[in-house]
Amino acid sequence: MDEFNTAVLNDHDLLLGGVVDLVAENQASARRWARMVELHRRHPDTDGNFSLSAASWVAADTSEAWAMGDQFARSQLNTALFLSRHLPEVWDLCLQGSLDRFRATTIADVIRKRLDDPADWMRVAAKIVPFLRKHVRRFAEFNIEVVNCTITQLRNKLNYETRVLAPADEEFVRRFADRSVAVWEDEDGTASLSISTSVDEARLAKHRLWLSAKAKRDAGDPRTVSQLMSDLALDLIIGRAEGLPVPNFARPIVNVTVSLETLAGLNDDPATLSGGTVIPADLARAIATKEGATWYRLLTDAQGEPVSLSTTSYTPTPPIWRYVVATRTTCSHEGCDRPAVECELDHDKPYPLGETSTENLNPLCRRHHRLKHARAERPDLHWEYDPVGAFLHTLRTAA
């Protein structure tokens, strides 16, 4: 094998070469799956005192030849059989190297776990495949494509589409009835305290702790925000919370997007929290009826698409902010899952050349917002962006 010397490669070759490696890895994984599927076809179930199923034969043979555990081999075979038989378009993305084994396995596992009817599998596939293709990043230089949605984004999409067919209301009621507090003690003297509740209450609690921690940090407390959040939570529970600051929050903390039909009880389609987390219809309706809950309508045109809003000022108006965080649920930087309600709104085309409108604004978390502007200030590095997601087109070249 030729020596692989990274020192002679420029940034372009280091970064895009890694993409080529990634596609090759994806193809190799898919081809092993295809070999297992073909072996399964060739190995019929056997009879006799020591009979084995075709799956057992394949698992035994491949686990020995490919140095993997028997149970792992069996699970890989089950995934490969499911994808090749019931989700052919997802299977093709795997064979092309565009979709990696982990994401493909996630798709198979969620669909099989939630749904039993093959017709429902096809219905979900009809929603998932366009989602995957929407998140394809193309590298024209090598004529390759890679699906680059995050696992959280993928699971949120799978959760929503499967919950439309198999609502989780009964499961939520059962698990919420079992809510409790648990402690896990570690051998080093630390421990973890867990409180199970509904997702909206958990988010509310975490955000209020964060606000309180930030207030104390800004007042000069030397502890980190994470340390303060832990300490303040225990102060509240144990009773040491005298003088604990709890700042008011000026915008929605729990942002729920739900159809009017679900809210009115005409159907049980799930709703989504900012960030893409899927919640059952009953929970969405319960949140809507809580004291102090405020709901806003999102205006749509005849085709059901949201109507664009704009203002002549630099600062977005509250309706524009609500529109953006409702329609773009996470940070728009590729690979970032931070909920939009925790992000800053960024002008894709800088103001005033670009207007302050729902079409020209995207949520960016603090880190990626700073990163975008830091790159823009260094033209010598040849950074370049597309209008959505700040994807890097022109990579740095070695000096």
Rank of each mutant, 00 (worst) to 15 (best):
D2S: 14
V8L: 11
N10M: 08
D11G: 07
L16N: 10
G18I: 05
V23F: 02
A24D: 12
V37A: 07
E38M: 13
L39Q: 10
P44V: 09
T46P: 03
D47F: 04
G48R: 11
S51G: 14
L52A: 10
W57A: 06
M68S: 01
D70P: 03
D70R: 15
Q71P: 00
F72A: 15
N78T: 12
H86S: 12
E89F: 01
D92P: 00
C94S: 09
D100I: 02
R101Y: 05
R103N: 07
T105N: 08
D109W: 02
A119K: 08
W121N: 02
M122V: 13
V124W: 01
A126E: 12
K127V: 09
F131R: 03
K134V: 01
V136G: 09
A140M: 08
A140Q: 11
I144H: 00
C149T: 08
T152K: 12
T152V: 14
L154V: 03
R155E: 13
N156V: 05
N156T: 10
Y160C: 02
E161S: 02
E161H: 06
R175T: 11
E187T: 08
T190P: 00
R203C: 11
K206E: 13
A219I: 14
D221W: 09
R223C: 01
T224G: 13
V225K: 12
Q227M: 10
S230Q: 10
S230C: 11
D231H: 06
L236W: 05
L236D: 08
I238Y: 07
L244G: 04
A250I: 07
N255P: 00
V256N: 05
E261V: 00
L266Q: 13
D268P: 04
A271R: 06
G276R: 09
A281Y: 01
D282N: 13
R285D: 05
I287R: 03
I287K: 03
I287E: 00
G292D: 06
A293P: 03
A293L: 03
T294P: 00
G304D: 09
E305G: 02
V307R: 11
S308I: 13
L309D: 03
L309W: 02
S310Y: 04
W321D: 06
V324R: 08
V324Y: 00
T329Q: 15
T330D: 07
C336F: 03
D337G: 08
R338V: 14
E342G: 04
C343W: 05
E344R: 14
H347G: 07
D348K: 13
E355V: 09
N360F: 02
L364A: 08
L364Q: 05
R367C: 09
R367F: 14
R375A: 13
E377C: 09
D380N: 14
E384D: 15
E384F: 06
E384G: 07
L392S: 10
H393G: 05
L395Y: 12
R396E: 13
T397D: 11
T397R: 14
